[in-house]
């Protein structure tokens, strides 16, 4: 459960102030597959980064599973990300010098509650899920964009996080690969009841989301279940 109240983020560029987020109030239920949509520059990434503890809000409060994340120190935030959150980025962001297997197991290797065997088995399992087991010893540059994005999803999933964030994960993919990625998210969501918050600006992605919020100029302009937007 994520609770957001009066969240604001103001960027200051010289004399100009940009209200990237302008008073966001939102609750995201556990197991929800939420789509954040809106035009470019509307504040989607900023919101996702706030939720993912990658940036600090100017004001407002975020509570994730009853933890006021604004009160966590730097190290606690890192640990929170490692144990509870998963990320998928637009440009895959795999470590270029690590193999597929190494990339996927990296977050699991840091977990104190995992043995080496569990890490190994877990990584293998998610690689199987994304159908890239036979490519596990390849380097990212030897894979196609779609395959790399699936690896990055596997990396986000390996620790079975409670919440998965994805910032335009399909932006660099063709529609075939985009569908594959979205199907994967849907499967994860249904199978493990993970909360998924995904940013997108492709209209046809709507069909996969349980609920969609639309941003404009840092404000929520619509909030509704699967396409039928309601205020």
């Amino acid at each position: 459960m994520i609770e957001i109240s009066e969240l604001r983020k103001t960027y200051r560029m010289g004399d100009v102030e940009v209200n990237a987020l302008d008073g966001i109030n939102l609750e995201i239920a556990k197991g929800e597959f939420l789509g954040i949509m809106g035009a470019s520059g509307s504040g989607k990434t900023t919101l996702l980064h706030m939720l993912g503890l990658l940036d600090e809000p100017t004001s407002g409060k975020i509570t994730i599973d009853d933890v006021d994340v604004g009160r966590l120190n730097d190290y606690e935030k890192t640990q929170f990300r490692l144990y509870k959150l998963g990320y998928v980025f637009q440009d895959y962001a795999l470590v270029p010098d690590l193999t597929v297997m190494e990339n996927v197991s990296l977050p699991a290797m840091l977990r104190l509650d995992r043995t080496d065997e569990q890490t190994q088995a877990g990584s293998f399992e998610v690689l199987q899920k994304i159908g890239l087991c036979d490519r596990r010893d390849h380097l990212p540059r030897e894979l196609s964009g779609g395959q790399q994005q699936r690896v990055s999803i596997a990396r986000a999933m390996v620790n079975k996080p409670d919440i998965l964030f994805a910032d335009e994960p399909c932006a660099n993919l063709d529609s075939e690969n985009s569908r594959l990625v979205l199907e994967l998210f849907k499967e994860i969501n249904e199978e493990f009841h993970q909360t998924i918050v995904m940013v997108s600006h492709e209209d046809w992605h709507k069909n996969y989301f349980h609920r969609i919020i639309k941003l404009k100029d840092g404000k929520i302009v619509s909030d509704g279940t699967n396409g039928s937007s309601a205020h």
């Binding site: 990658l54 640990q79 990300r81 144990y83 959150l85 980025f89 962001a93 270029p96 990296l106 840091l110």
Partner: peptide
């Protein structure tokens, strides 16, 4: 730098 940012985002500590 970007990659370092990503690593931190996925829970890798700055000491690492």
């Amino acid at each position: 730098r970007k990659q370092i940012g990503i690593l931190k985002a996925i829970g890798v500590d700055k000491e690492v």
